[in-house]
Design a protein around this nucleic acid. Structure first.
Lengths: 148, 148
DNA sequence: CTAAGTGCAAAATGTTTGCATACTT
DNA sequence: AAGTATGCAAACATTTTGCACTTAG
């Protein structure tokens, strides 16, 4: 952390251009590397990691830590950090590992509730709801059915 | 993930005993391994990881994800599963590290909301709300005041 | 006896680092 | 010219997995 970028390089530009082109999307460092490899416009992975981290410091990207095992996700926010009102929430399935990315007003309300009733200022960037997704719940139900 | 423990083994017992003896403390899987190595009572690290994950599922431990680069932290919370199906929620202060246990019906409602509107069955035992607690928010405000 | 847990070592994963080279200013 | 950034490959740290063996129920 704390990697202030000082020079404007070709890699930095095409990286920003790409990220800007996929807003509201979760992207991992690995995804970025793969994308550029496919495009032929290859960027070294070390550069990707270094630039990504720098862009987070500058507020251009938001970084989400879901789990130690899964890679960090980045999302283009263009210097406008979301205020808790419109934050995006994450649900992680304990079964299949799927990450669900929700923009839900009702969930945003819990931020307000925590603030007003418990004096706790929620940080949606860090918070992840763990549980079981629809698909896995369905296959669980099937399994139970069969074992009868 | 999803490691329901069914047998009572020696390793499981001494692991729980140890964790219970250091409540309100952050412990990583590595710390645990090292502790037992020092004690002579060695437990294989695979077992440590597996049991820890299982204990999180059971609500005995709470797991914290700080960053992808740093190891996950565990903390003994003693399996607060509450009759009447009302789960206990945890809020973790990012500033002072304080762990707040909440029993709040309104929060329980989000479980229902996630189920009904997003088909997601929330596991309150695993879920941690990250944010800033009242005290830290107050001292932050003070700091801002002073720097004027 | 069967299902589950253990331990070892090996693999997998995601991220970081050292260093020589190339680019920005 | 001085200061950064890049890219490669190697290093790292944490966590997971395969498999033969042991243990609990």
């Amino acid at each position: 952390m704390n990697n202030k970028t000082k020079y404007k390089t070709k890699q930095r530009d095409i990286l920003i251009e790409y990220l800007e082109s996929v807003p509201k999307t979760h992207i991992t460092a690995g995804d970025v590397c793969e994308h550029f490899k496919r495009c032929g416009t290859s960027i070294g992975q070390a550069t990707v990691y270094r630039q990504l981290e720098g862009l987070v410091d500058e507020g251009v990207l938001q970084k989400y830590i879901i789990d130690t095992a899964s890679p960090a996700c980045f999302e283009y926010v263009g210097g406008n950090i979301h205020h808790s009102g419109e934050a995006c929430f994450h649900c992680k399935c304990e079964r299949c590992g799927k990450l669900i990315h929700l923009h839900c007003e009702e969930l945003s309300a819990i931020g307000n509730h925590l603030m007003e009733h418990h004096g706790f200022r929620l940080n949606p960037l860090r918070t992840v709801f763990y549980g079981v997704c629809e698909d896995c719940a369905a296959s669980e139900a099937e399994d139970r059915e069969e074992s009868k």
